[in-house]
Design a protein around this nucleic acid. Structure first.
Length: 887
RNA sequence: GGGCGGGUAGCUCAGUUGGGAGAGCAUCGGCCUUACAAGCCGAGGGUCACAGGUUCAAGCCCUGUUCCGCCCACCA
């Protein structure tokens, strides 16, 4: 293909995106570890979205940043593995499928465990691909042939191996403790899965009459229904009001039980009445006190949130909130409710369904994570894993230092079933990777498998190595573990990142990732976080349909400043869509001129504009590479935006038009065509990680046989023509200044762009004179002049508007047009600004301390600036006087 | 109670060896200039939350105050 393909007038992402994505997949361009690859390995494991998930802005940001890194690294020649997959999301998925069953008039209990699990797999086959398809629409360049699911056989093997190993090491145990119970999901949940919400409630003051003698103790509680399970009242031994009462007994109202008054320093004398009711089976702190004092544990609320028989005949069977009302009414009736006041406090809720959790006594499996946490803290302290931005390190340490045992068993059906078996005959507990045939103790074959499954995060914690084939020693592990970076939001720092570090260090003897890049959270308009379950999500797919995936990606990248949350605005996305279109049109223009012949790596004839844009390009190359290397995605995006729009389009393309439209075969024309092609092609490659679709589309319109832009190389120090050129930059700045000065006059004086002007420049030195004279054509062209005269000095032309640029004074000749009043105002305005700058600079130079203590280069800079300002003012002053005469 | 982040143009936000206050959108004025009106050329707009300190020099470093947001702990 020798002639450039013609591009449509405006960029329409529809169609283009699907076409190129299909092409990339067909060509296997996302595949890692292609045969013979000896290149440096670079790997990322995707934070696996829930299989039930729908793409939200949090995903979009997360995926975009990873995709930028992966695409960039591929362009740099690395052997890149981006491991994709989804999470089985135990509770979330079970909820979804249960809801579906409900709408079909059945339930999981009707089906039974096995049939239900089969239903979930069916659901997964039918709907589980949604989130993956959505990631693809965003452009994610994962190695899809390696896609994993946390319930895959291989991952299941990893889970069982880890479980057994930790059990054998004594780090996993089973026991009856007070855990957080969700009555709706009907399962235990871990401490960090409890979300606290402020709620309006009441504080109830209840009198517990003494058994011997008159009076009683009054306690305050927010949960009167739990009093039915009280087994003591505690007072602080240092509390003069109550100390003597310890050891006495009280009647537990509404029951026929008698409970002791005990002394414990835990009691806060300043809260409520200073006397605390103790319900060991339904409050974590009471549980602790109960253990210390050997109190009975009376469970009055069952697993579904209803009162048990132990709550007494009057209340058994009531739902817990109904029971609260009933208890309050009963107490009131018996005259034992002393007082009742409104009270706001935070209440724990289930992070999945936001039902109020019930602390409940229950037999569960736990991981003793402390020993694992210590090692995981160490590797961060050692710098084996860097957390970026590093202020998250503190949060990480804080949590790890105060970590408590992790309750990993869940009373649901969907998930990794705990690999433990109980002997029906002797009660022996066996933890094995595969089912034991008989009891290790009594040889009975009557074994029952544990019915609980594992917390979803247990399998997620193994993700960096389980996806690569562990416990097998695979080539994948050898090549790509530890991974290069983990990109994630801080909301799952504890849920996921910390646990991966613990498991990775423990089982692989190596950190799971060298870097952890923590990005901001995309919040909704109220500043609340968008969550999978609350449904307050903005749909990125809609944004993609309205603006294109590239516009969304560029916006997210430009927003991704470290340490700040993202609040998306429609107008911002629209602005970046305009940028995509700008790039498109610049390419269209370029393609009108470049052809197969201008691929030269050397330049025989370069104009100032050519040398200047190549110099700017060399700086851009460094800026972009450095920005991506340090996860400053916004800096990369902004630098590219600035270059493409305001340097390449605004100046370079306009400046080279006369050359391009010039005579065929002219060396200047050929030179510019070569530069044009070089810049466009380099910029496309640099932009590709951020906006993959439009860059691929343009890339293929370039002349010559093209492979994918994904197979191009990120611009490096060669070729020689792309180099920093201080001289070109200085000269171009002067020329741009002259042009801008004249344009400014036009604007301020309301002179139509269609009216051509003449101008005169008086240059103060030879270099300035030569530079301006050498670029007369560019100035005439871009300032829309009909003629330009350049001299070393001279009188100010009578009818002229003036601007001062460097060591030159530019006069736009305006005979018959000039409004001297206006001109006077214009110059005075500039003068005011100038005086202000001058005052600042003079102040410094008059300050001896500054001259003595500031670094020499700074002083020199200020001196130079001072001289420039003085010269500038002098020129303006002279002009102003002349203008004032005319006005 | 502990910790973290933030307060910069009308809005959304960039801004690190401390030395020039910036971008996008919005606003105002002028343009169909053959890549682009999704565009072009100009312009206006600031007590960098407040108060003190360090420094020759502070949006940036330190202290205090205040407001907003988030996380953790406690919550009888």
């Amino acid at each position: 293909m020798n002639t450039p393909r013609e591009l449509d007038k405006g960029y329409d992402p529809g169609g283009v995106e699907e076409r190129w994505y299909a092409y990339w997949e067909e060509e296997k361009l996302f595949a890692a570890d292609k045969a013979g690859s000896e290149n440096p390995a670079y790997s990322i494991v995707i934070p696996p979205p829930n299989v039930t998930g729908m793409l939200h802005m949090g995903h979009a940001l997360n995926i975009t940043l990873q995709d930028i890194l992966c695409r960039y690294r591929r362009l740099c020649g690395d052997n890149v593995l981006w491991m994709p997959g989804t999470d089985h999301a135990g509770i979330a998925t079970q909820n979804v499928v249960e809801k579906k069953l409900l709408s079909e008039g059945t339930s999981r209990h009707d089906l039974g465990r096995e049939a239900f699990i089969e239903k979930v797999w069916e659901w997964r086959r039918e709907y589980g691909g949604t989130i993956i398809r959505q990631l693809k629409r965003l452009g994610a360049s994962c190695d899809w042939d390696r896609e994993r699911f946390t319930m895959d056989d291989g991952l299941s093997m990893a889970v069982r191996t880890v479980f057994k190993t930790l059990y054998d090491e004594g780090l996993i145990y089973r026991g009856k403790y007070l855990i957080n119970w969700c009555p709706r999901c009907h399962t235990a949940i871990a401490d960090i899965e409890v979300e606290y919400e402020e709620m309006q409630g009441g504080l109830y003051y209840i009198r517990y009459p003494f058994v011997d003698g008159d009076g009683g103790l009054v306690v305050a509680t927010t949960r009167p229904e739990t009093m039915l399970g009280d087994t003591a009242v505690a007072v602080n031994p240092d509390d003069e009001r109550y100390a003597a009462m310890a050891g006495r007994t009280v009647h537990l109202p509404l029951t026929d039980r008698v409970i002791p008054v005990i002394a414990d320093k835990y009691v806060d004398t300043s809260f409520g009445t200073g006397a605390l009711k103790i319900t060991p089976a339904h409050d974590p702190n009471d549980f602790e006190i109960g253990r210390i004092h050997g109190l009975d544990m009376v469970k009055v609320i069952d697993d579904k949130g209803f009162m048990t028989a132990e709550a007494g005949e009057r209340f058994a069977g009531l739902e817990r909130s109904e029971c609260r009302k009933a208890v309050v009414a009963a107490l009131d009736k018996e005259g034992l409710l002393e007082n009742q006041e409104a009270y706001t406090h935070s209440v724990g809720t289930c992070y999945r369904c936001h039902t109020v959790v019930e602390p409940n006594l229950s037999k569960q499996w736990f991981v003793n994570v402390k020993p694992l946490a210590e090692k995981a803290v160490q590797v961060v302290q050692d710098g084996q894993t860097r957390i970026i931005p590093d202020n998250w390190e503190k949060t990480y340490y804080e949590w790890m230092d105060n970590i408590r045992d992790w309750c990993v068993s869940r009373q649901i059906w969907w998930g990794h079933r705990i690999p433990a078996w109980y002997c029906d005959d002797c009660g022996e507990v066996m933890v094995e990777i595969t089912a034991p045939g008989k009891c290790a103790s009594c040889e009975s074959t009557a074994l029952t498998r544990e019915s609980d499954v594992l917390d979803t995060w247990f399998s997620s914690a193994l993700w960096p190595f389980s996806t690569m084939g562990w416990p097998e020693e695979t080539r994948l592990l050898k090549t790509f573990y530890p991974t290069s970076v983990l990109v994630t939001g801080f909301d799952i720092l504890f849920f996921w990142v910390a646990r991966m570090l613990m498991m990775g260090v423990h089982f692989m003897k190596a950190v799971p990732f060298a870097d952890v890049y923590i990005h901001a959270l995309v919040r909704d308009e109220d500043g609340k976080k968008m969550s999978k379950s609350t449904g307050n999500v903005i749909d990125p797919i809609e944004v993609i349909e309205n603006y294109g995936a590239d516009a969304l990606r560029f916006t997210l990248a430009a927003f991704a400043a470290q340490g700040r949350d993202v609040k998306l605005s429609e107008s911002r996305i629209e602005g970046y869509r305009h940028f995509i279109n700008k790039l498109w049109n610049a390419a269209r223009f370029a393609l009108m001129h470049i052809d197969d012949s201008n691929c030269d790596e050397t330049l025989s004839d370069a104009s100032l504009a050519d040398r200047w844009i190549l110099s700017r390009l060399s700086t851009l190359r460094q800026t972009v590479a450095e920005a991506i290397d340090t996860y400053k995605f916004n800096e990369a995006a902004v630098a590219l935006y600035q270059f493409v729009w305001h340097e390449f389009c605004d100046w370079y393309l306009e400046a080279v038009k006369p050359d391009l439209y010039g005579k065929k075969g002219d060396s200047r024309r050929e030179g510019s065509k070569t530069v044009l092609r070089r810049v466009l092609s380099d910029v496309l490659v640099m932009l590709h990680p951020i906006v993959p679709f439009v860059t691929e589309e343009i890339w293929h319109a370039l002349p010559g046989d093209r492979t994918s832009i994904m197979q191009a190389a990120f611009p490096t120090a060669g070729p020689a023509m792309v180099a920093y050129d201080a001289d070109a930059e200085a000269e171009m700045e002067l020329v741009m200044g002259v042009i801008t000065g004249i344009r400014n006059v036009r604007g301020e004086m309301n002179i139509s762009p269609s009216k051509t002007l003449s101008a005169e420049v008086h240059a103060g030195d030879d270099q300035t004179l030569n530079r301006i004279a050498a670029n007369e054509d560019m100035i005439v062209n871009l300032a829309r002049l009909d003629s330009l005269t350049v001299t070393t000095a001279g009188e100010k032309p009578k009818f002229a508007a003036t601007s001062v640029v460097g060591n030159a004074t530019v006069y736009a000749l305006l005979e018959g047009v000039i409004d001297f009043e206006k001109e006077k105002t214009r110059i005075e305005k500039e003068m005011t600004k100038l005086e202000k700058d001058l005052a600042g600079v003079s102040g410094k130079l008059n300050n001896e301390a500054f001259l003595n203590k500031a670094p020499a280069d700074v002083v020199a800079k200020v001196r130079a600036s001072h001289e420039h300002l003085l010269a500038h003012r002098e020129k303006l002053q002279a002009t102003l006087e002349k203008v004032a005469e005319m006005a």
